[in-house]
Design a protein around this nucleic acid. Structure first.
Length: 282
DNA sequence: CGAGAGTCCTGAAGGC
DNA sequence: TGCCTTCAGGACTCTC
């Protein structure tokens, strides 16, 4: 399941191959994603050059422009991998990749490179934003990037004030901070020694300092490692992503804590599984 | 406004 | 072996 490090790894994997490339054709095989792929997406993308791909949270924004001139047009492909999506590169001349059942969209470039979007559960998104600015309702109320300086303990403490929601659900809320998914939320809280059920508004600023550091460290390490995931993440180059073999608590129910040997516990929060060490986290 | 539940979907895993 | 149920997950959307 792609979390922010996987999305960033995908971006970094795609960029060298598609930046400056001109899109020749777009093949849509199944429009039914989180929202339907717009009927004009293929037409809008075709003929445009991908100038850049940036990331906001787990969204990728593909800056696309037509040839310069009086009729120059600009827009953005807004993509999200959902929980089972992947974008992978197929090099020119590699005919071993016939489209499979969940290969919903292909973006073909003039040089023969194909970017293929695969998403068995179809929770992902492929949308078109017309115009020179990457403005979209989905991006309007997103919180700060976790790896940016804007995301610090002072900010978190202020936003958490008076909130009764659990700190784990709090840091997974994209309006608070983007890109902290279920796996990394559990891991970061373990590193910070904070119990996932603690009310967000009752976390001291000193403990938020530890939590912010833990989130930044956890995400940065995962990006450095090339992304991590449990099951079917596929690297942009087509290689399998790293399995999360180093998780301290995630998916380790009843196994001994790597620090104190106490059995890791599994609970449900907001219809989501949470893992924590009942001794290390208070 | 915040909190909590519901929703989309497929594939894996477990029970009988 | 095979069918049925349950669960997993991102994050938007709805209800209270």
């Amino acid at each position: 399941m792609p979390e922010l490090p996987e999305v960033e790894t995908t971006r970094l994997g795609l960029l060298p191959k598609v930046q400056g490339g001109r899109i020749s054709t777009v093949t849509v095989r199944d429009r039914r994603l989180r929202w339907p792929i717009p009927s004009n997406l293929a037409k809008q993308l075709s003929g445009k050059t991908v100038v850049d791909i940036s990331r906001r949270g787990k969204y990728l924004l593909w800056d696309c422009r037509s040839d310069t001139g009086a009729n120059a047009q600009r827009g953005y492909l807004l993509s999200h991998l959902g929980m089972s999506g992947s974008l992978r590169l197929i090099n020119n001349g590699d005919h071993s990749h016939t489209p499979q059942i969940h290969d919903h969209l292909d973006i073909a470039f003039d040089d023969g490179t194909i970017v293929r979007y695969t998403d068995p559960r179809r929770f992902g998104a492929m949308l078109w934003i017309a115009g020179p600015q990457p403005a979209h309702a989905l991006l309007d109320s997103l919180g700060p990037e976790p790896l940016s300086p804007d995301f610090d303990a002072t900010y978190l403490h202020a936003v958490a004030k008076g909130r009764s929601v659990s700190v784990k659900e709090f840091i997974m809320n994209g309006r608070v901070v983007v890109g902290v998914g279920n796996i990394y939320a559990s891991e970061a809280l373990f590193r910070a020694g904070i119990h996932p059920r603690r009310a967000a508004g009752k976390v001291s600023i000193a403990r938020f300092e530890r939590l912010v550091d833990a989130i930044k460290l956890t995400l940065a390490n995962a990006i450095k490692a090339g992304g991590s995931s449990l099951r079917n993440y596929v690297h942009a180059s087509g290689e399998l992503g790293y399995f999360q073999v180093n998780a301290c608590v995630y998916d380790r129910d009843k196994l001994p804590c790597r620090v104190c040997q106490s059995p890791i516990r599994s609970i449900r929060q907001g219809q989501r599984s949470t893992y924590f060490c009942p001794r290390c986290q208070t």
